[in-house]
Design a binder for these strands. Structure first.
Lengths: 121, 121
DNA sequence: CGCAATGTATTATTGACTTAATACAATGAT
DNA sequence: ATCATTGTATTAAGTCAATAATACATTGCG
């Protein structure tokens, strides 16, 4: 797995976002077991403490749960996952539109720009 | 001026982005004098050193210039400003689309979402 | 001249993130 | 039973952003 982190944002927060996306996109399925804290740390080339900190946050919001001595698993609550997906999509979309408006582009200009950029799929 | 900063990103970088947007949107005009480092620090309620650090970055990329003992001014090179505006819009748009694809939404779904969200203007 | 305002530089301190190196607790498998 | 694997906790160190408190240099102005 590629692990390119932005130096200007705490790694554990970027990890939270990355894993959240993996879950809401279905890349990691509901009920699926995550790699162990130590393994994830090796894969991502970060400290186990950093991974642990991220996973605690994901557990706090209910996206994963822990079976002690066995591992951590993605929630089996598909409705919750779907809720976070909608929430995530809305949040970053609103933030994006807001930023574009700050530089003076309205929604129509945004729509045109998107049609021209970012792959044709 | 409201100064809501994200605790998880260095303030000086958020300041660079904010001022860059103010310039490329025309909120601060070409050739216009910025408030002094000390005044900006007071307005934004941050340390003068933090403001200074941000302004150095803006000067490095040519968006502002300094007249010692007189102040700092927005560049008068409108072509440069326009270049950064295009660059900025493209960059955040591509990043946005990329993120949406990571959670499994394609461009058509993105277009629909934008039409529904973010004000009607 | 003397002073105020400008940008700039320096030193010290605090706090958060990250890493490193361990250690402990609990469970499943051999 | 023993051991490996899991999550979890602790302590120490290093880095960097941010603040605070100054100080210096240069220019314009009264």
């Amino acid at each position: 797995m590629k692990s390119d982190f932005d130096n200007n944002i705490p790694i554990y927060l970027q990890l939270v976002e990355q894993l959240k996306r993996d879950i809401i996109s279905g890349k990691i399925s509901a009920g699926e077991r995550l790699h162990s804290v130590r393994d994830l740390a090796l894969e991502l080339k970060v400290n186990p403490n950093t991974v642990q900190k991220a996973l605690v946050e994901l557990e706090d919001i209910g996206l994963i749960f822990t079976e002690r001595t066995n591992g951590k698993f993605v929630t089996e609550d598909n409705a919750l996952i779907e809720k976070y997906k909608q929430e995530y999509a809305d949040k970053i979309t609103e933030k994006y539109i807001e930023t574009m408006q700050k530089i003076g582009l309205d929604k129509n200009e945004v729509l045109l720009l998107i049609k021209d950029l970012g792959g044709n799929k």
